[in-house]
Amino acid sequence: MKDVTFGQYFPAKSFVHNMDARVKILAVIAYIVAVFLVKAFHFLGFLACFLFVIIATIFSRVPFLKVLRSIKGILFFIILSAILQIFFNADGKILLEWKFIKITDKGLLNAGFIVARISLIVLGASLLTLTTSPVEIADGIESLMYPLKWIKFPVHEFALIMSIALRFIPTLLDETDRIIKAQKARGADFESGNLFKRAKALIPVLIPLLISSFRRADELADAMDARCYSGSKNRTKYKKMRLTWRDAVATVFIAGLIVGVVFLNKFYWLLVV
């Protein structure tokens, strides 16, 4: 279990990998806004977003299949929302009728629209997690939240909690593995029985894990104290994030996408008719 990396970071050296994490996070937010801006049934707007993802993927050197695979995780959710739209949308012209089920043209269009929207959002977001390590994302979020200091939000503490949590995920996974083996050696059964029984079988794993986490937290606190930790006061930061020409190029690119989507919304009839 040692090699489990949290998230799906795909290490590589590329234009997108080298971008500032803050710009990437903002770009993904802007991209999601662009996807939502696309008016109902203006599929050309989605095409523009899809092209954007493809170009970004090419510049990230992540295999395109790997990006596509991210949809797999929410496939169930996508199919469910499509089914709901197809079978229970009664608006529009009826194409097919069987007992209480009516399939309408509007329902089909709506289903396609929602599937495209969710898939595009997931593709864009997974490109962020594929090209940015969790630590970078945490640092980026910390930096972006910096203005919240004005309302006395503990930005530094919040960021430290995030990064320590990330740091301990592999350690705790390792420990879980060890506890499961130890309980199996004592005759614990995790594989048989119904869902309820299996969930109950996990209790002897979770309790030792919880107790040891507290012990770890206690020791970590001592070690941090011993290394002169005293909160954010007078603290410096070794890693500094720097904006480069890449970030400028990417910003222009994402701005172009939003302008493009808005343009398509307004003048859709020009292109279709």
Binding site: Y229, K237, Y238
Partner: peptide
């Protein structure tokens, strides 16, 4: 395992000096 605070070696070593407010 319970003493390292960061996920990258150099970030962890930097933790102490950062606390002292030392320049980059």
């Amino acid at each position: 395992d319970n003493q390292l605070v960061a996920s990258i070696v150099e970030d962890d070593v930097a933790f102490g000096p950062e606390n002292l407010g030392i320049k980059r």
